[in-house]
Design a protein around this nucleic acid. Structure first.
Lengths: 89, 89, 89, 89
DNA sequence: CCGGGAGGAGAGGTCC
DNA sequence: GGACCTCTCCTCCCGG
């Protein structure tokens, strides 16, 4: 095992400190992510209070996301074809 | 069905515009959420490249989140007690 | 707890027998599923031996699956719209 | 690149046809696989409606699968030993 | 209380 | 052959 591997035993206080920092970064990001999830819920709540069908809205959002994913996928296939044909990208 | 409900047929261009705005707000928020999810993935990537076990890290994050939930639960119970006792919060 | 609940203690030999049957059905289905997964792998193997690019093939299959999913999603939205408008399906 | 490689450019209509057939075979198999996955879901649904805890059932199935894997592993080792000892299998 | 959707863990495929 | 990465499956949580 390499002597600079953070997971190694012995003199690992630096590794522990690094780990702590990484975990705190993750937790900070997850907090922000959760806040955004709440914001989204609130927007749907607004929509509902204005008489919109949120189930329908969610489906629309999902469909638009699928469109986007498909567009990206198609682009990836095109790139792959061109690569297979030895063409410059 | 109420005649001012946005989902009603007839004179619904305003409703359509409102709906568009709401959906765009949701999509904008979801993009930001996805960006944060990527950031989190990157942090785990960093951790991995430094020799940390990301699976373990994820467990740590999950446990700390549960602790946090428990702490909030305890606080809620305390609040309930105080409320029941007519005490100011 | 209801006395006819299979999970109840006492006189549960019938429940145990039922459970055994259900689990065996699941296992039988999973075996067939695994066999099909092997078949798919074999088809890709054939394709590769005939000089086809399996990575490209997989991406094509994935894209077609996405098309199908999108088509179904669009149909679901249409159905929802019609339902919302009180139209017979 | 070999001149009979299906992916080669020129006179590739036969290759295209072959490719189409292969992709359709894959898709047919994947449909059957998806159908079996649905069947499994239905069996769990039945179990649930009979009062069984499906989460537990899934664990049982997983454990039995692991047992099976272990049994096969042991058999493979035995086979290896017998082979090493020049014994008929 | 139940079903569907979102997120995470584990498995298989691909690339190096 | 090993590591990354995508995909599938499972679990959990929110909305109905």
């Amino acid at each position: 095992m390499s002597n600079e591997a953070p997971a190694s035993v012995g003199h690992n206080s630096f590794a522990a400190s690094e780990l702590k920092t990484l975990i705190e970064r993750v937790e900070r990001l997850e907090e922000e992510k959760a806040a955004l999830a709440e914001d989204i819920t609130e927007v749907y709540g607004e929509a509902k209070s204005q008489g919109f069908d949120t189930k329908l809205m969610r489906q629309v959002v999902r469909l638009r996301k699928m469109d986007e994913a498909e567009r990206r996928e198609a682009a990836a296939i095109l790139e792959l074809y061109m690569s297979a044909l030895g063409m410059r990208l």
